[in-house]
Simulated assay, not measured.
Amino acid sequence: MERELLLECQRNDRNAQRKVYEQMAGKLYSVCKRYLKRDEDIEEAMADTFYKIFTKIDQLHQPEIFEAWARKIAVNECLQKLRTAKHLHISFEENHVSNSDMGTEDISFEKDILSLLNFLPEGCRAIFNLFAIEGYPHKEIATMLSISEGTSKSQLNFARKKLQELLVNQNI
């Protein structure tokens, strides 16, 4: 992200904010979609994310880390949404998914994998995203979600096994 564009955002320039939104909306939408299922929740998390970005942008002192900073805000907003909606429950139960439940769209491998995340329980999906995609360590995940490190590790293991089963069932 250009330093000058971010400086203009710090001065509350609406045109600069619109440009930042246009450049970042797709990336942040993808982040939110990995954590949340419902479109309304994703839209709300996106709105809250951009509100925080534009109201706290003066706290960003290194423009070169803007995208990582914005992604972290989006992740935190999604986790907050899951916590407040009480959707974040840790589950060890088996969710059996038939091939007919998943659809037969011919989409790329990456999209196939990401769409399979929707078949994981919210808690597993959040932990899988935080660890495997965002790169957070188990200790930090445990703190963020108010769970033990052991629970984080076991839920990641459960998520991996379920994803492997789903991949085998879909022949991906």
Rank of each mutant, 00 (worst) to 15 (best):
E2Y: 02
E2P: 00
E4S: 09
E4Y: 01
L6R: 04
L7T: 05
C9E: 12
N12Y: 11
D13N: 13
R14A: 13
A16V: 05
Q17H: 07
K19R: 06
K19M: 13
Y21V: 10
E22R: 08
Q23L: 14
M24A: 12
M24Y: 09
Y29G: 01
S30C: 10
K33N: 01
Y35T: 04
R38I: 00
D39F: 04
E40H: 06
E40L: 04
D41F: 02
A47I: 09
T49W: 04
F50W: 09
F50P: 07
Y51L: 13
Y51R: 08
K52I: 09
K52L: 13
F54I: 15
F54A: 09
F54H: 11
K56L: 13
K56M: 13
K56I: 12
I57R: 04
D58R: 09
L60Y: 12
H61K: 15
H61C: 14
H61M: 14
P63I: 10
E67D: 10
E67R: 07
A68N: 12
A68E: 13
A68M: 08
A68L: 09
I73Y: 04
V75E: 15
V75S: 11
V75T: 15
N76Q: 14
E77M: 15
Q80H: 09
Q80Y: 03
K81T: 15
K81C: 14
T84Y: 05
K86C: 12
I90W: 05
E94S: 09
N95A: 10
H96R: 04
V97N: 00
V97C: 00
S98L: 15
D101M: 12
D101T: 05
E105A: 08
D106V: 02
D106C: 02
I107F: 03
K111G: 00
G123A: 07
C124M: 11
I127A: 01
I127M: 01
F128L: 10
F128D: 07
A132D: 15
H138V: 05
K139M: 09
K139Y: 00
L145W: 01
E149L: 04
G150F: 00
S152K: 02
K153T: 03
S154R: 13
Q155A: 05
N157W: 00
L167G: 06
V168D: 05
N169P: 02
N169K: 15
Q170P: 00
Q170S: 14
I172G: 04
